[in-house]
Design a protein around this nucleic acid. Structure first.
Lengths: 228, 228
DNA sequence: TCAAAACAGAGAGCACTGCTCTTGACTTCC
DNA sequence: GGAAGTCAAGAGCAGTGCTCTCTGTTTTGA
């Protein structure tokens, strides 16, 4: 293992600097990131950016990856910080962490969960980081099942749906009964919907107490998945 | 009342034609609508478009308004077509209609419920049409309360939230108990989340039976609001 | 009836975008 | 010390929204 050369280290620093400036632009100017504006801020020619990122989409992908990881880390940290046996507390903490991260980084959240950029297709590397938040929620339910403190609902699901959900269980590596799995998905969908509504300004102006509103809605999802 | 002049009629037709072409472009090329491309398709100079729409944003606003109205009409029609006394059936029908419209018009749905366009601020005219779908859902619950066939959950809500929800009731003109109101909002949020996840490709590939999945999730929201 | 006003469209031009290619300077390595 | 690799700049291409000016045409009203 050879120590990275000076040039390699300078290059790595440059990449970080570009991403930092790009993130700042994302926060102020929205998703339509301008390479030239980033280059201007860095005091370099726009063409020089291409030494570090093959295209604007690649820069966007890098930012998306970092955002997914930041959100995933925030959710996982909140989950880990809560009392491991307090399932409901973990569920609420993880959800609140997701919302807090989104409110602190609205542009990056929009990049992850807003309407897809027209010409842009997210590469496969983004799949794993993207699943960290929902996987955290699933993990809480897994722990609950393992501890015997979570009784799944005994609903009968139509066959094709049950098969899909079993497959999804296998795919995620978290074996949950279909009826519980579908409710976990409902909770994740609701969490995403709540944050998006609040962030994209679609929440009614008549709801100034947003923290309380969010907490109550999240409590409903905890009820839905059967957390005591 | 004078009959509109020939020129006025030609002008109205031209406006419709521009919107139609723009809608087509929206569907194929995504939300970053290009005025020049629309003009090219119409065989006219890009500057000529400005005779009909003061700016690109105004054209976008016109499309957004039409989309809201189309979605609202679809939801209301489905609700009206269902048996008026079958509250649950109406709830499911309205939800399915929203999803069907979104799947048929993905670009327009993204325009309405995706991440907000950076420089664009929706004018106030869009507020009323935007509330038609959720108002339809509220109407179903109102009818249920009036018919005495819907018993609201007796939950105790923290005071600031209860106040907000009462205000929201007054604002919408649909008087619902806060505990029911918050669940109605939950259902609407969930509907939006489900459609967005499916449309924006964030739904897991392991769920090929999307109709069944959606139906089941919607049934859960119907349970949540207490529809028998 | 006929001139004035309103309107429609075209074209040029401005400042901006992502991106490519070439050219020159600099650093690292053999 | 020369060759190879790297970095940055600059010019240029095709595209964008938008403004302004100029030319026709249509409508209007005295």
């Amino acid at each position: 293992m050879v120590a990275p050369s000076l040039r390699a280290r300078v290059r790595a620093g440059m990449i970080e600097e570009i991403k930092a400036v790009a993130r700042r632009h994302l926060a102020t100017d929205g998703a339509d990131l301008s390479l030239r504006a980033v280059a201007r801020d860095l005091g370099m020619a726009s063409s020089a950016i291409y030494r570090y990122f093959p295209s604007r989409d690649d820069l966007l992908t890098a930012l998306i990856l970092e955002a997914y990881d930041a959100l995933g880390a925030a959710v996982e940290t909140a989950d880990a910080a809560a009392d491991h046996d307090d399932l409901r507390g973990r569920w609420l903490a993880a959800s609140r962490a997701a919302r807090a991260w989104a409110l602190a980084h609205p542009a990056e959240y929009a990049l992850l969960y807003g309407s897809p950029v027209p010409g842009y297709a997210a590469p496969d590397d983004t799949v794993a980081p993207a699943q960290r938040p929902p996987m955290t929620l699933l993990g809480i339910l897994r722990d609950g099942m393992a501890a015997g403190r979570l009784t799944p609902p005994d609903e009968e699901l139509p066959e094709p749906l049950r098969g899909d959900l079993n497959e999804l269980s296998a795919l995620t590596g978290v074996p949950l009964p279909p009826a519980l799995m579908v409710r976990a998905m409902a909770g994740w969908t609701q969490l995403f919907g709540l944050i998006s509504f609040e962030l994209f300004g679609r929440i009614n102006r008549a709801l100034p107490h947003r923290d309380e509103y969010f907490d109550h809605q999240i409590a409903l999802t905890a009820d839905l998945v059967g957390l005591p």
